[in-house]
Design a protein around this nucleic acid. Structure first.
Lengths: 211, 211
DNA sequence: ACGGGGACTGAACACGCGTTTAGCATACTG
DNA sequence: CAGTATGCTAAACGCGTGTTCAGTCCCCGT
């Protein structure tokens, strides 16, 4: 929430927050103990309560921190720029690509996002709503610009594209296993973007060959 | 695992299993207590341990039960039939549609599947692998039959289609909120299938209008 | 120099968890 | 009818959890 670069960041407080973020993303907040976070952050369990009041307080702060990070991704994707980008023929500009670009290798935030959606966290619902509205607007602009075909069910189409994009983040590890590249690392982004771009531009099915 | 219709099903044992399945799917096994399952199933906590040995034993049995249900869906989708179906021009035959058809309204299994994937459960990884192999085979057959365009990265294309399909299940509630239909209920399946079919058949983007 | 306050800790506490145990009915077997 | 296995329960146990508390250290203003 605080916009100013908090001076008491990079402190034990921040170390606790970061450790909690990573552990929560990996295994879920319920499965992580305060003592475990403390060990990981190199502090005593009591200090966590001293700084955050309770485990739930820490949880709330980590949630807010993650939400802020996601909003940063969100705001780094201005719609106008995207229209130009897409209209230029490239298939990029997806949320997943923004993730790959915005979050360094090994960041716990993609996994955290998955948990946000799976646990039906209200913060996750709000995030989804905002991203959906953005996708919807984007397609309106693209149709207007002649870059996308019109459709009679734009609500579903926007949702279709959005969740396809999110699937890349949610199923990241499974995808990496079967295709041999992490789809949030440059190599995987490239392969995925090319294939998705082809399907989105011209489809994948065709009338079967006559005989 | 047992193929014969176990005579001691529809008993307290089955009631416990069903209650656990629903609770695990909704909130995750770690967040559910044995006492809670017992209350829901109308038995005493001790009976759960009597029947399943431990909470982990129950968890394993519920996992196996769910895996069996998913495999039933899997086997209800023979590839040959699918090829004909898809080649016929319809966009159906997706995993999500099979889910909608195979699981009654309000079944906890779709949510359970989400947890399987999100928690990096090995059973989830195995399931994903099998479904991926099936998708991969399906596309090979379709290309052979002239129903799908060839691609130089078939591994990514198969993964792309599979995860798009799974996204529908994983993000079901969020989708339902924004499009106004549950995508695993007949109405939503219809809308989603039509839109996805259009995109997969002919794409959604086009060169911008010249001027 | 010194007093005060915040960062920090070790030890303990209360509680809820999974689990154990002893025992009660019921029903089947000889 | 005794004997015994089975389905089931109430009560308790040990343990790990989130949390509290009393106190130590150390920096910083006066």
């Amino acid at each position: 929430m605080g916009s100013a670069p908090d001076p008491n960041d990079l402190t034990a407080r921040a170390a606790i927050r970061n450790a909690a973020l990573r552990l929560f993303a990996d295994r879920g907040a319920d499965a992580v103990t305060v003592r475990e976070i403390a060990t990981q952050a190199g502090v005593s369990p009591a200090l966590i309560l001293h700084h955050f009041g309770s485990k739930d307080g820490l949880r709330a702060e980590v949630d807010a921190y993650a939400a802020q990070a996601f909003d940063a991704i969100f705001e780094a994707m201005p719609a106008d720029e995207l229209v130009e980008f897409l209209a230029g023929g490239a298939a990029g500009g997806s949320l997943a690509e923004a993730f790959a670009r915005g979050f360094p290798h090994g960041s716990p935030l993609p996994a955290y996002l998955g948990r946000l959606f799976l646990t039906h966290d209200p913060a996750g619902a709000a995030l989804f709503g905002r991203w959906y509205a953005m996708t919807r607007r984007l397609f309106d602009l693209m149709v207007e610009a002649g870059a996308a075909r019109p459709t009679d069910d734009p609500a579903v189409r926007a949702a279709f594209f959005l969740v396809n994009d999110l699937a890349l983040i949610l199923l990241r590890t499974q995808i990496a296993t079967v295709i041999g590249s992490d789809p949030l690392e440059p190599d995987g982004v490239e392969r995925w973007g090319r294939e998705a771009g082809k399907v989105y531009a011209e489809g994948a099915f065709q009338a079967p060959a006559k005989e």
